[in-house]
Design a protein around this nucleic acid. Structure first.
Lengths: 106, 106
DNA sequence: GAAACATTTAAGCAATCGCTTAAGTATCAT
DNA sequence: ATGATACTTAAGCGATTGCTTAAATGTTTC
């Protein structure tokens, strides 16, 4: 693909297909072919999604004969989890009002 | 905007500008005008981002005179946090190998 | 080497994105 | 009413997205 630069994690997980790929890889490494069987799209399309996940650092590849075995590398998701978690007080219903109050009156 | 449908949360948070808007609203409700001051883009652009955040259920509006006061509604981020957290075992270095093993051999 | 296989890369295309300017709608002030 | 203010909606534009088919690049098998 000759990617223009490192792909943003948030952009990478924006596409449902790519989140599904991560889900599949979570239950074990898989070659491209096998991954593609889980989707209706063509194999090149899956390969392109994998390239984006690669650029985002969310997956890594190793060669095994003519196959490329993909494995998950969820570490970049840590920052996503932390970012989302930082809003936790807003969905902790009972204390939401207080939380917001404290934010506005530090 | 006559939105074609409810906007996906993951797509909504994919744009840096929209995450920044959420960050700003986290420290207090703000009218559009005031939000726009924090950005280089035009006010209509901010308004469009707000429309997307609205469709994703991430913000809510109330009228105050001719102003629209936006406030954060982070609840949809809960599912994002949970989704990302579900991969936690993959970044818990020491136990990653075990975690993957257990996943493959349930 | 030639042929089959696994995957990537290239090229192209319709749809969507993020932005702009311009026009519309609602509210307040005079 | 008239005009200013606050915002949204519309229209348009270049860039990017997600896909496709076709061609190119390894790699194994014969």
């Amino acid at each position: 693909m000759a990617t223009p630069g490192p792909y943003d994690v948030y952009a990478a997980i924006a596409a449902p297909a790519r989140r599904e790929i991560l889900g599949l890889l979570a239950s074990g490494d898989q070659p491209v072919q096998q991954l593609a069987e889980s989707f209706q799209m063509t194999l090149p399309a899956v390969s392109q999604h994998l390239a984006i996940l690669r650029d985002a650092g969310l997956v890594s590849v190793r060669k095994a004969g003519r196959q490329r075995i993909y494995s998950i590398n969820a570490e970049p998701l840590k920052s996503v989890a932390e970012w989302a978690q930082s809003y936790e007080r807003f969905w902790t219903d009972k204390l939401a009002a207080l939380g917001e109050y404290l934010e506005e009156n530090p």
